[in-house]
Design a protein around this nucleic acid. Structure first.
Lengths: 159, 159
DNA sequence: ATATTTTCAGAATTTCATTCCGGATTTTTG
DNA sequence: CAAAAATCCGGAATGAAATTCTGAAAATAT
């Protein structure tokens, strides 16, 4: 078995690379190599390996939520009237299309869904709720929470 | 006033660029230029302008949550016993340090905080809750929600 | 102890980002 | 309405970084 394979297939060097790319994917391979104690080539191969293995699933630009016109965040909890597979799939598709919807979790407990929404002010939220979310047939009940502040958002978990 | 400035300082070309970079920041300026109908140079200048204006706040790699050892997601809602500024700051700092904590929202309503947590199984969550979250003095009450599935996660809102 | 596999580093190549320049278009000013 | 200024664009040249190629060192297995 190769040296780089521990329980999860990642050795400490891989993790170091991931910790760097997790917050800044514009570092050059040379800069990464320096920080993890390798030269360019093996560092580059490792990154490629991590990409092909799907450990790194993509590279994205982070946009300032306020500066693109969605300064306010709400959390909506939702219950559907019935829970057959088709209904759930339809609701999921509905949410995918809505630009205000950032995150969607299918949950256990009091509610079926927890949805994070980014809008422009309470007016923006009212419009979203009445004209978009509640247009979907079969919503039994919702509860809205206003977010005063977002204290943390990690695109990927720290490893 | 320059042509590229509308109500929010972004014209349609800027938005097209942002829509591309939002999901893939590894596109070359040439590829972006082709898709938005510009040549390399002006396209590159626009991207730089968006970076300097802070509309683009960074570039990151997205890691597969399961493949880095945190396949399961929980939502914890938290109430603190008292709400003076110092306590809130301390709790925020505490959460920043915890690798399991992905998102933290300071909220109105029934709870003070909504926290998204990534862990390895129920055991991982129990450990997180008892050994880490509840080590913080001053938590009055928590409620945990298990996430069956994450149906959507946009790093940045669609614009 | 030897063969095999894996990992590494250095140099060469290719691709891309970045800069520089001049021309066209739009907006502002007289 | 005309002239001046500012803005935006595209093409070519430069520089930097990604990627490929080669061979050596280290680790593992037989």
């Amino acid at each position: 078995m190769p040296r780089t394979t521990d329980t999860k297939g990642l050795d400490e060097t891989d993790r170091k690379i991931l910790r760097l790319l997790r917050t800044n994917c514009r570092l050059t391979t040379q800069e990464i190599a320096d920080q993890v104690g390798l030269s360019q080539t093996p560092c580059w191969s490792r990154i490629k390996r991590l990409e092909e293995a799907g450990v790194i699933s993509g590279y994205v630009a982070i946009l300032d939520q306020a500066k693109v016109g969605r300064p306010d965040t709400f959390i909506v909890e939702v219950n559907l009237e019935n829970h057959d597979d088709e209904k759930i799939e339809n609701f999921s598709r509905h949410l995918q299309q809505l630009p205000e919807v950032i995150d969607v979790y299918l949950t256990t407990g009091e509610f079926d869904y927890v949805i994070i929404v980014a809008v422009d002010g309470p007016e923006g939220y009212e419009t979203f709720l009445r004209k978009k979310l509640l247009k979907f047939e079969g919503i039994k009940h919702t509860r809205s929470i206003y977010c005063l502040r977002r204290l943390k958002r990690d695109v990927s978990p720290m490893i």
